[in-house]
Amino acid sequence: MKPVIVVHGGAWAIPDKIAEDSIRGVKNAILEGFKILENGGSALDAVERAVRSMEDNPVFDAGHGAVLNANGEVELDAVIMDGKTLAAGAVSSIRNISNPVTFARSVMEKTDHVMLTDRGANQYADSQGIPKVATDELITEDERKEWEHYQKYTDSVKTLFNSQLVHDTVGAVALDCNGNVACATSTGGIRNKMVGRVGDTPIIGSGGYADNHIGAVSCTGHGESIMKVTLARLILFHMEQGKSPEQATDEALRYMAERVNGAGGAIVISPDGNWAARFTTERMAWASIKEDTLSYGLNPKEMFNEKTFRIAS
């Protein structure tokens, strides 16, 4: 089985001023993940590494670069899932850990639970010696200024999502040389969200899902809408009915728009290596590597291909 990996940097109205950095960020992330697959590593290791790369990149809303809630605080969510065993780990509302996806994997591998949240998650992190950072290290100066500016408005988070005021989730899906699939998704949420609000990202079947029998999905977009239709599992349901990853994703996104007026996107991979990166927002930064081709895009119906994997500095 030849390995395949796909990543996204969030489906939203990505402004021109960070468009180039967003593309560069997903390309760098996918190279990090593909190195693992190329050397015979697991899909699980690959998606974790790719998502960590984006969590460390302040152009995205995950880890470093997270947006602020209504109280001006960071609250991070993440999920990771192994398609071979259906093992999964998730964390929500954590405040001072720069790589929530690795924290989620620890929950998956070292506890009997699937999700830890808030105070309990932080207590567990302390018990495991998971490195912590000062919350201020996760917030960019631009985000602090944007948050202070938009405190003057009373827009709902859905209105904010439909504007250019919010970043969004990052994620990855992969297929390794042993035929195993995995997914990982991480987010800093929606700017000005209520304290304690948890979106789709850490919810199994909504923000992500992986099953060797069907495929793997990582979702992005308006979290409340995604949860209402369990978007990740809905896409895989359509794939179980014989649809391609692209057809299944388009149908599920169309249903979400018609049923709950929600916009978003998803990256998908099937056990035979077919993949899709689809979205109904203005833009979504994404990249994939299959065989010797790195593909990437930002705008609707856009795909660029490179035969080499060099990234400009």
Rank of each mutant, 00 (worst) to 15 (best):
V217W: 04
A263F: 12
G196I: 10
V26A: 07
A277K: 03
I311E: 11
P58W: 12
M108W: 10
D155I: 01
E224F: 09
N212L: 08
A277C: 10
A62C: 06
K27L: 12
P131S: 11
M1F: 05
S53V: 09
L231I: 10
K152R: 14
R119F: 15
G63K: 04
K290R: 15
L68A: 03
E143Y: 04
H167P: 04
T230V: 13
P3H: 06
G65S: 05
L37H: 08
D176F: 05
D176I: 02
E240T: 06
T102A: 13
G33C: 08
I269Q: 02
I214E: 02
I80N: 00
D136Y: 08
H222Y: 15
K35A: 13
K301L: 11
A11N: 07
E258H: 13
N180E: 10
A287M: 08
N261G: 05
D250F: 06
A248T: 01
F161C: 02
H8E: 10
L294M: 15
Q151R: 15
G262E: 03
I204D: 02
F60W: 11
L253R: 02
G10I: 03
S288G: 09
R283T: 13
P202R: 02
Y255V: 10
T308W: 11
S22N: 08
K243N: 12
L294N: 02
A210L: 04
F103L: 01
M303T: 14
L160I: 14
V79T: 08
G221P: 09
E75A: 12
S186F: 05
A125G: 10
K243Q: 14
H238I: 00
T280Q: 09
L236N: 02
P271F: 07
G297T: 04
E32V: 15
E291I: 03
D112W: 09
L236P: 02
N299I: 01
Y124N: 03
E306D: 05
R254G: 14
E109N: 11
D176N: 13
I289Y: 10
A78V: 03
A182Q: 05
P245V: 02
V133Q: 06
R283N: 13
M115N: 07
N192S: 10
G242L: 07
I18T: 12
S93A: 15
G265H: 10
V74W: 05
E38Y: 12
E246L: 06
I289K: 04
G223D: 09
T102K: 14
E137G: 00
I36P: 04
A266D: 03
M81Q: 06
G40W: 09
L165N: 11
L138F: 10
S313G: 07
E75N: 10
V173N: 09
V59I: 15
K84H: 08
G33T: 08
Q241K: 15
T281W: 04
E137H: 11
K35Y: 07
T308K: 12
I139W: 07
I203K: 10
G171T: 03
V170E: 04
I139M: 05
E20C: 09
I190S: 00
G215V: 01
E224W: 10
G221C: 09
A88N: 00
C177M: 13
A90M: 06
E246C: 01
L76D: 03
H167N: 14
R144Y: 12
W12V: 07
D211K: 03
K110F: 11
D292P: 03
F309I: 06
K301M: 11
E146W: 07
